[in-house]
Design a binder for these strands. Structure first.
Lengths: 119, 119
DNA sequence: CAGGAAGTACGATCGCCGTCAAACTTCGAC
DNA sequence: GTCGAAGTTTGACGGCGATCGTACTTCCTG
């Protein structure tokens, strides 16, 4: 059992069970444009991204804060690779508990330039 | 054209075009538990309800504020009947612009007692 | 018309959340 | 072992939004 932890470099932050998360918490997490942008990028990328890869209009400390909130809300999973912290969207797990929500937000109202102006 | 207005008792508040509403605005409207409760009640009722019909854990002036926000976010339509202000959920219009969102929030995570404790 | 019911408008208050800078920690590279 | 890159932690600050009470408006009822 410790073997598994060791393999992941130790520094593994706590991740909540998605089933234990309230709609309230999810909405509070997704109401922030910066956090929604993070989720959007992860969704679009289709692969795990390090914090630095996603460029955000805020300082590093603020970015850390946002990732923390997303993790607490069960939206992302984080793990270290060297000095970089990787972020993985917890799509499937999340879909089971809040079916359609993520899709509705990423897809919904796609025409607006809202926060999706990368490219 | 004034004829139409007259029929509605005059006191008709301004209603935005749903297409002109941002995801941001919608989320800001729905992140509040009280407002989500209002939407939930309207959704469950399946018919228009007056402000007073929906009992909320806040003062009247605060309630007015919440209805205002929901109206501005394109979620409800309001009209007077006598001294009562009726509220109608703008389901279909909303569904066209933010497909699945409303359903995902009302249905999603139905097991939690979140804000849906009526009955 | 007097009274009351149903909301609205207006300020004022207050707590929370997003933001930042600065100091610190870890890890990889050289 | 040093340096730098990548994040984290902590504390402080500022603004926005939820809340309330009070005064006001409108409409129905008797």
């Amino acid at each position: 059992m410790t073997a598994a932890r060791q393999s992941e470099r130790g520094r593994v932050p706590p991740h909540p069970d998605v089933r234990a998360i309230s709609t309230q918490q999810v909405l509070e997490a997704l109401v922030d444009p910066v956090r929604r942008r993070i989720v959007g990028e992860l969704h679009a990328a289709g692969e795990d991204l390090s914090c630095g890869t996603i460029d955000l209009p805020v300082s590093k400390s603020t970015a850390t804060h946002h990732f923390h909130v997303l993790r607490e809300a069960g939206l992302i999973r984080q793990y270290y690779v060297g000095t970089s912290r990787m972020n993985a969207l917890r799509r499937e797990e999340f879909e089971e508990v809040f079916p359609g929500l993520l899709g509705a937000l990423v897809t919904g109202h796609a025409r607006e330039s809202d926060v999706g102006d990368r490219a």
